[in-house]
């Protein structure tokens, strides 16, 4: 699991996840995701390179997202593949954290 972050215009923090968000991947992602959640006010979680997402991986997204939202921040999910999106929808997370496949729309939603 590779995780990278970048600041993009508009005060947005983009965190890109790359790899499998299984039990091992989630454990690798947790620390960095929680650090990002500690300062980000507008968080774009880039899922385009996530190959697998299980419930432990969901946890690694939901807990930081909840932290950002609890401070009045915004969180969007960007670019999950079809199966990853199916996991998000089955879990009902898509109704709480919006999913976008167009980057401009994702950025606009964070305004």
């Amino acid at each position: 699991m590779q995780i990278s972050t970048e600041d993009i215009p508009g005060g947005i923090t983009r965190v890109a996840l790359d790899g499998r968000m299984d039990i091992a991947g989630a454990a690798q992602a947790d620390l960095k995701m929680n650090i990002v959640a500690g300062f980000a006010a507008k968080l774009l979680v880039d899922l385009r390179k996530v190959e697998f997402l299980g419930s432990m991986g969901l946890r690694s997204i939901v807990i930081p997202a909840r932290a950002v939202r609890s401070r009045g921040g915004k969180v969007v999910l960007f670019g999950p593949n079809e199966m990853v999106q199916s996991v998000l929808k089955t879990s009902g997370i898509d109704s709480l954290l919006p999913i976008y496949h167009d980057l401009d729309a994702a950025i606009a939603a964070l305004d």
Partner: peptide, 22 residues
């Protein structure tokens, strides 16, 4: 159950739902 807000969302508890779906 379905959650009305992210504050209510339990991070776990999705396993049975996912198995039934997939």
């Amino acid at each position: 159950p379905a959650h009305a807000s992210i504050e209510e969302l339990k991070p776990g508890g999705q396993g049975i739902r996912l198995m039934r779906k997939f």
